[in-house]
Design a protein around this nucleic acid. Structure first.
Length: 310
DNA sequence: AAGACGAAAGTGGTTGA
DNA sequence: TCAACAACTTTCGTCTT
């Protein structure tokens, strides 16, 4: 799938074809393109990619209206808002065949439509956050934090021109890290509609623009989930965590990926407790390759004097 | 035959001139 | 901006159980 590269460079030839031309989303092929005439912007209702925009600075009055609405809605949660909005949308009059005498009505619609569409993309983002968060089985506090972070990004105007899906995925990834329940990039992109590459791009972008610092994830944070996915009990979990603790005291974890460390520690702990899992099994669950598991586990067992007999 | 091993080349991100 | 670099992946042939 081809993502248009150089996302910010394409601002010249959009004005021309704002009325038709683009029929399907270049990203996901969806035909659900939303034309926002107030903002001269077209975006995909499926994946959120903004396909064309002609930047018209929005007036201050709708923005006040808008953000007030948003804060109200953020408090009540995404699914409810989604429903409220859906209802309102179906009553729009067609723009394609302007019947006489309806002009004023359309004028009015156009004005409210500006707010509607901005809100609609916001609501879409919230529903995506909710969908992915629930697929990842994330706790409520993380979901709420993610919504709030999205609002922050929106206030700083970091959203427009980027795919909403990429931004929301990155925001979930960030929030998980902040709340000590990290998910791997692989897991996030597994429930997202965009790939790891785009998510990590958005991730770095957001960290920079929002001035967020996330401390590097600890291998320990991954252990419980990985263990349960492998059907390993609490004793092995504890053993793996102990191995990680000892490793980090000896600074064996420096500069290494936390997931690889966690994988190796679990691999060792399982063998020590007589519940062997193959490198492949651990690799499938953790998403790191067998080679990396091998390298880490060799280092750990040697440096920590752990005898691992297969 | 499956699992473990490790060499070698490739990838994408970070860093420092 | 670019090249060097470190961590990790991919691929693949070989050894072990």
């Amino acid at each position: 799938m081809v993502v248009p590269e150089g996302d910010k460079g394409g601002g010249k030839d959009k004005k021309r074809d704002k009325h038709e031309e683009v029929k399907t989303c270049p990203e996901c092929g969806s035909k659900c393109l939303v034309h926002d005439y107030g903002r001269a912007e077209i975006f995909c209702a499926d994946c959120g990619l903004v396909i064309a925009e002609n930047i018209v600075d929005p007036g201050p009055e709708w923005r006040a209206f808008d953000s007030e609405q948003m804060s109200k809605r953020a408090r009540t949660g995404a699914p409810l808002t989604y429903r409220i909005h859906d209802k309102g949308l179906s009553t729009l009059t067609s723009w394609d065949s302007p019947a006489q005498g309806q002009y004023n009505l359309k004028k009015w619609e156009q004005r409210t439509h500006i707010a509607n569409t901005a809100e609609r993309s916001f609501v879409f983002a919230l529903s995506e956050i909710e969908r992915m968060a629930s697929a990842l089985k994330l706790p409520m506090n993380v979901r709420e934090a993610a919504s709030m972070l999205y609002r922050r990004a929106m206030k700083k105007h970091l959203i427009r021109g980027r795919s909403i899906e990429g931004i929301t995925s990155a925001i979930l990834y960030i929030t998980c890290r902040q709340y000590g329940v990290p998910r791997t990039l692989e897991e996030v992109s597994g429930v997202s509609r965009v790939g790891q590459k785009e998510i990590s791009r958005a991730y770095r972008f957001l960290l920079r623009e929002l001035d967020i610092k996330v401390s590097p994830a600890s291998p320990v944070d991954f252990v419980p989930r990985f263990c349960s996915m492998l059907g390993l009990g609490g004793d092995i979990e504890a053993k793996a965590i102990e191995i990680i603790k000892r490793a980090s005291e000896k600074e064996l974890t420096n500069g290494r990926g936390p997931i690889g460390i966690a994988a190796a520690a679990i691999y060792i702990a399982a063998i020590l407790n007589g519940e062997h899992r193959t490198q492949k099994e651990v690799s499938d669950v953790t998403g790191v390759t067998e080679v990396t598991i091998r390298n880490r586990y060799k280092e750990l067992s040697e440096q920590l004097d752990i005898e691992v007999l297969l």
